[in-house]
Structure formats: structure tokens, C-alpha cells
Nucleic acid binder design. Structure first.
Lengths: 126, 126
DNA sequence: TGACTATATGAGCGCATAGTTATATAGTCA
DNA sequence: TGACTATATAACTATGCGCTCATATAGTCA
């Protein structure tokens, strides 16, 4: 069983969330989840300047979400945190559930005028 | 199986992460995960001003992480998103894994000099 | 109605940070 | 060594946002 988290731990957790709360960093991580990659490739595929990419990678590195190694002239980054993929998966699930709720709400506001309209069976909140 | 997320979806996901990347909001959610609650109670227990609490709740409401109902003079908030608890759990797991890795790294740099030092038994991640 | 309580919201301030540009550092290859 | 490439970083700007203070809105109770 799980007791409540201490304030300090909560701040650390918040910091992890904050690091992920940036589209540019998520684009980088999306690419890295497909496999390790150099900074230049990341910059190109995430549509970011080289300097900006480097900075975001520094943030991800400080959060230990990625790890870095040098190879010749290049720096190669890869995902380091095994919880990252399930985390994003769960986030997408929550997002899908919300979209579905919105769809239901819109449907509910339209359908009363038409009476019993065939309604899609409730799906699991996948 | 899961294809790569579109840029637009990624931005929505980032927004969700960003909402969670704030210690004050996590304190609010921590309280709400224990049960629904009025704004005043939340302000007190999360150690926030009334105005600030209200604003954070507005953010959480816009993100559909909580829902709101009026009762008499008060507003009662409760957690709305079923993925929230597992999300935090996963985040804590990732954090614990990181701490453990750090501990191993420190241990590895210290222990070679002393050999097998008595190690405290592993505790659950609080 | 008026006094009181609970919540929401607007204005303003200060700080954190994402972005750019320019430059430094470090490796490769001739 | 010098030219070239890849990456990191410093200086700067602009914007977003968390916070406070003051005020508006809405409900309760006399």
C-alpha cells in the first residue's frame, strides 16, 4: 500500500513532469524512442536549431531521461529511462479517454432533439 | 502496436505533462486523490492562498484532470482522470529507479576501497 | 434587504526558460 | 600543423506563468 508522498518527493516528481511538458523535448524523445541518434540527426528530425537541440538534450540528460556517449566527432544520445515509454502510453490513454468524453458530451447535446439515436456501445477507456 | 505520434498530438500530450509539472498542482492532486474536497480545504492543506488555489484548479479543470460541482456556497472538486494515479505511480517508479542507479554509482565508487560494506535492506519507495 | 462566507477573476510583478546568434571546445583528416 | 565538422555554451531577448492583492460574483442566513 502507498502512503502520501512527501512534499520534497512531490517536487522532484513535478520536475520530471515539467521536463516532459515541452513539445520540443517530446519530439526529441519520440525520435530517440525509435533508436539512438546523433545531435545533428535529432536537430533535423525534430526541426530544431543545433543549439536549441543541445540545450534540450542537456535538460533531458540532467533528468536522466537520456544518456550520452561520444563516438568520434559526434555525440550519440539514447533513452535511458525504461518508464518513459509506458508513461507516454498512459498519457495517450488518458488523452484518448478525454477525447471520448468530449465526443460523448457533444453527442448528448445533439441527440436529445432526436430521441433515442443509436448509440455506440461504451468502450473501455483504452 | 503503436505508430509514432503526430506533432499535434505530441503538443497536447506535452500540455498535459506541463500541467502536472507544478508542485502546487501536485499537492492539490495529492489531496484530491484522497477524496473530494472544497477549495478552502485544498488551499489550507496544500498551503496555498485562496486565489492561487482557485487558479490552479482552473488549470486542472481545463485539462479535465478534475471535475467540479457546486454545493451550497462551496465548490467541490474531485479527480476526474482515472489515469492520474497510475501515472504518478509510474513516475515514482522511474524516480526510484534513478535514485537506485545513483546509489549504485556512488556505492561503486566508494566500496571498492572497503569491499563489502553492510548495506541497508532495500525499502519500498515510500 | 444587508451582512457574511466561499469562490473566481483581473491587474501587475518578478522569475524561469525557450529561442536565437555568436563563439568556444573537441575531434577528424589532410 | 591547419582546415573542417560536430557539439556545447554564453549572452541576450521575449514570453509564459506563478504569485499576490484587490475586487467581482454568487450563495446563505438574519
Amino acid at each position: 500500500m502507498k502512503t502520501t508522498l512527501s512534499d520534497h518527493l512531490l517536487e522532484r516528481i513535478a520536475e520530471r513532469f515539467r521536463v516532459l511538458g515541452e513539445p520540443a523535448r517530446l519530439r526529441i524523445l519520440r525520435r530517440l524512442l525509435a533508436g539512438e541518434c546523433t545531435v545533428g540527426e535529432l536537430a533535423q528530425e525534430a526541426d530544431l536549431s543545433q543549439a536549441n537541440t543541445s540545450k534540450h538534450l542537456a535538460v533531458l540528460l540532467a533528468a536522466r531521461l537520456v544518456e550520452r556517449r561520444s563516438e568520434g566527432n559526434s555525440a550519440i544520445y539514447r533513452v535511458n529511462d525504461p518508464t518513459l515509454a509506458p508513461l507516454c502510453q498512459l498519457m495517450c490513454d488518458g488523452f484518448a479517454a478525454r477525447l471520448e468524453a468530449e465526443a460523448r458530451a457533444i453527442g448528448a447535446s445533439i441527440e436529445p432533439a432526436r430521441g433515442a439515436v443509436a448509440r455506440r456501445p461504451r468502450r473501455a477507456t483504452s
